[in-house]
Design a protein around this nucleic acid. Structure first.
Lengths: 333, 333
DNA sequence: CTGAAAGCGCTTACAG
DNA sequence: CTGAAAGCGCTTACAG
């Protein structure tokens, strides 16, 4: 049987209340002698307090839930690292789940977070209109990253200016001489992707280029989509000289397809991505992209959430918007 | 205030015992009428049972702990996906932490798992001699992936034949004409890396090549190590015509360094990795590597663990050893 | 068919 | 300086 507070109390000939006080450092009133005796016994017995019991009475689990679309996308694994960095430092741990952009899964996972009594939630969800209501029901303090869903337990948002980033990317291709720029949108239902799409359109307009909807492809955020979309465009004899992808995974898939069809990057077709995952510096040619400070975004999300949990003063909901910047690499040089 | 079982009981005019029974499907003795009434009220109130309270009494949390070195390495994020696939299907969720190969962190995380009452553990730890004792203390049913640490709560292992894989990789380079093969070992303290090292040595011997310790570099499992190790070897005017890296991240870093110094892959120097993470098919040239069925390894680890938790019959500790195979790509063609 | 009561391992307000 | 007691939200053996 596992050692409990009762065992420690018996061994020390004190009450469990006294043991509890020294465990929690509320021992200013406890004599030095008993305090040290209890500490010694805890040490000897390798006693680890049961935080499940503790959570039940204090209503604080010191766990945060983190729900991401896909842990295998380096953008999200880095984001997790950022959250972890801040949260662990403050004594919180993380329960992480993947939605695969599936709202059914999201719902199950939100209920899981409720069951497990997480103190707060860091969420990169879908944007479906029903999500707001569900979050209202669940009612756990939530920080959104790169998403916008209004609901009553929202305590902060961390984001970048996706429209500006999209415009930056598109303008860069135009300045490099591209006239017919494909946009690989990924899932346009996603807030950030839609904003990047708007940025694409506005940059075209700013430079006097006509928007051509046959140059836009919709799909998911994986490299397979980029690969297949490019093949399908080439198959349709669509001609283009630049590709702007909504994230780096898509861009990398697109580059693969181009190379397999004998196109040279950047000579024949230039490619730009979005996110600046480490992968983009490792592929050949290295990928020009829009950098997001992803680690910092994660730690900021955690900081906002834990600040809220510590103060419970629901002041203005903070929205932190990070700057993006263009990282020019070989794929557009 | 959150809805509790007491609220539901009051609304239904029954005792909490009765509500508990219908929640848990132990309602064969409950009249259809009360059962349906209770279900309706649960629905109406959006009642989600508090699993923290449940865990405290049943001693089952339906959570598994999973401790990996680095969630950002695609090998581990894929492994997590494999575990998740099996575990979620069976009603278990995951608490995931990163050790960064730091034993201090590992210790804290093991205590966390104990505190949180996880039912079992899937562990990719370091191999330090003290870990066995610590695991004895912690005493949570554990499945090890790609590691060997004897302890009393070990319930299974999932692995590959790393020595054979290492030999396969090295032999491939030799058959492709390499005479001086560098081994980028990563952290040789790691069981799998050491086995891969033994495979390297034995393949050299089998082919009548002399082992040369100046061709072996030790470090970590990141691309930075591969990059720096190659630069340092070149700096020392060390000559070589093949590189075998202990994982793909290292190999990719090594390729970068080679390319930046003007070497052609595979014409001047051939490169082979280990793991077959998705990245290896995306870099240029594409990377020859030793494939591990990582997703399946994850789901198998989960299956073994949950089987044990369901039966508690500690029969023979199962050890599942998966086959590896060579994936030939451009980097050795 | 239903419920009262004990108990899981803790914390905390209160009494002495 | 220390402890008895109530309570957190559940489950379960038992009684009726």
């Amino acid at each position: 049987m596992r050692t409990t507070i009762k065992d420690i109390a018996e061994l020390a000939n004190v009450s469990i209340a006294t043991v509890s006080k020294v465990i929690n450092g509320k021992d200013s009133s406890i004599s030095k002698k008993t305090r040290e005796k209890i500490k010694r016994i805890i040490e000897e017995e390798n006693y680890i307090p049961n935080s499940v019991a503790r959570t039940l009475v204090t209503k604080q689990s010191y766990s945060l839930g983190m729900i991401v679309p896909d842990i295998c996308n380096p953008f999200f694994s880095q984001l997790i690292r950022g959250v972890e960095e801040d949260a662990n430092k403050k004594g919180y741990d993380l329960i992480i789940t993947n939605t695969d952009d599936d709202d059914e899964k999201l719902l199950v996972q939100l209920e899981l977070m409720k069951k497990k009594m997480v103190d707060g939630l860091i969420l990169i969800s879908s944007q479906n209109s029903s999500i707001g209501e569900i979050l209202d029901d669940i009612n756990i303090p939530t920080v959104l990253v790169d998403r916008v869903v209004e609901h009553r337990s929202l305590v902060g948002r961390v984001e970048i200016d996706n429209k500006k980033g999209g415009s930056l990317a598109t303008s860069h291709l135009i300045e490099k001489g591209c006239k017919k720029i494909v946009f690989l949108a990924g899932d346009i239902q996603t807030f950030s992707s839609y904003q990047r799409y708007l940025g694409y359109k506005s940059a075209l307009e700013d430079h006097g280029l006509k928007f051509d909807e046959t140059l836009v492809e919709f799909g998911s955020f994986h490299s397979e989509f980029g690969y297949n979309a490019v093949l399908s465009l080439l198959d349709k004899k669509c001609s283009f000289d630049g590709i702007y992808a909504s994230n780096d995974m898509i861009a990398v898939g697109a580059m693969q397809a181009l190379k397999s069809c004998g196109y040279r990057i950047p000579e024949d077709i230039k490619v730009i991505g979005f996110d600046d995952i480490y992968l983009s510096a490792l592929v050949t040619p290295t990928l020009t992209t829009i950098h997001q400070p992803v680690f910092e975004m994660g730690s900021t999300a955690s900081r906002i959430l834990i600040d809220y949990l510590s103060n419970k003063t629901k002041s203005e909901t903070p929205v932190v918007c990070f700057d993006t910047r263009l990282i020019e690499r070989e794929s557009t040089r």
